[in-house]
Design a protein around this nucleic acid. Structure first.
Lengths: 211, 211
DNA sequence: GGCCACACTAAGCGCTCGCTCACCTTCGGC
DNA sequence: GCCGAAGGTGAGCGAGCGCTTAGTGTGGCC
């Protein structure tokens, strides 16, 4: 924990870019509500209430309830993509970069579980246009991970039979952390990140994976 | 595809035990609707319509919409548990049994994706009592997989640092198949099952995992 | 053939949903 | 000190929700 914002109820630092203050409070309230109950089970009255406002206030800053989900989903996916890009483009062997990518991606899913849940599991609540936009971002996310695995396979550093399938599995493993991770559980996000990096290196047959 | 029931729209054979006929049709309709749109976004009118009945017909066979979800969830979890128990209790080394468990568990999640989605992702839509009952079943599911991994670790056949964490990851990997698997995609459930069995054997450091 | 239990429907109740609208504050600029 | 824009509220709209109720067909049993 390097900053105070990472404590319970936090994650808010990620939304610093959202500008009028009231709009940000509504967005954060929506993230919490969507993560707790799901998009369809959340009412606009609940969101406004959490933000300390009347139900009508929501519609000053957002056209519809769906626009809230869309905004959350886009910002979240951009953040996820940025995390993987940073890991992918740093210096180092494919092994090091894959371990870095997995551990930081997992840390984000565990530590920011509230946000990650909405981002990863409420995709289908979006309308067709918004969903298409988000799916394009997801393909880029896939591409970053596949790139590292492909490189390791080409160089002989990894032993992978099915690059596409393995990429899918690695991402799936990381994403599902948002479903089961429990803040009050026995593991910190850092510990899960480390464990998962090790497991993934084993999956790709990286030489020197923890024996 | 060994039987006609496994074709599109199928999965229905799994509900053979549900009687009378109308109650089963409603249950199958509910599974499809919940999987497509989620529990909260599904209306009782939609379920009844899919089953070719009037909205009121639902309440002859089920007390509430939630009872439908509860029934689906319980039957599904029992089926999942049965699959893992069969693999866990057969003869063979931990390696063989783990490969069998993962490949059959994954086949179920991919082939019966509709059902598996509801079973795995609509848990939180249940009320407290029903959820507690289902969570007990999930702990048994965990136990079956952990048992195999523990045995392999004890005998030295596997190289596992964190048995609990690895069990969690293996199950997570299998379960998430229900989220991403696409019937029209390039892989059959059998192929995904095989791929995943290999990946999991690598994760546990099984000797003789595909090199 | 009369009767009842059962499965089902048409209509609709009470409620809550997403969202709107008329109105009220607050505040910087002149 | 007045003014308009920006940000907010209270009340309430039409719609659709989960679920109920009164009534309808139908098949098996004596």
């Amino acid at each position: 924990m390097s900053t105070a914002e990472e404590t319970a109820g936090g994650e808010a630092q990620a939304w610093g870019e959202v500008t009028p203050d009231a709009a940000r409070r509504l967005l954060v309230a929506a993230v919490e509500a969507f993560a707790e109950r799901g998009y369809h089970a959340t009412t606009t009255r609940d969101i406004a209430g959490r933000a300390g406002m009347s139900p009508a206030a929501l519609y000053i800053h957002y056209k519809t309830k769906e626009e809230l989900l869309h905004r959350i989903s886009r910002i979240g996916h951009e953040k996820a993509l940025e995390i993987l890009r940073t890991a992918s483009r740093r210096e180092g062997s494919p092994t090091e970069r894959l371990a870095d990518a997995v551990s930081s991606f997992v840390r984000w899913h565990a530590g920011g579980r509230t946000t990650a849940r909405v981002v990863q599991y409420e995709l289908e609540s979006l309308g067709p246009d918004a969903r298409a936009e988000i799916l394009a971002l997801r393909r880029k996310v896939d591409g970053e991970v596949r790139g590292i695995i492909e490189e390791g396979a080409r160089s002989g550093e990894f032993e992978v039979i099915d690059v596409h399938g393995t990429t899918l599995a690695v991402l799936s493993l990381c994403i599902d952390v948002a479903r089961w991770f429990n803040v009050d559980g026995p593991r910190t996000p850092e510990q899960v990140g480390e464990l998962y990096a090790d497991l993934v290196l084993r999956m790709v047959g990286a030489r020197g994976a923890t024996a």
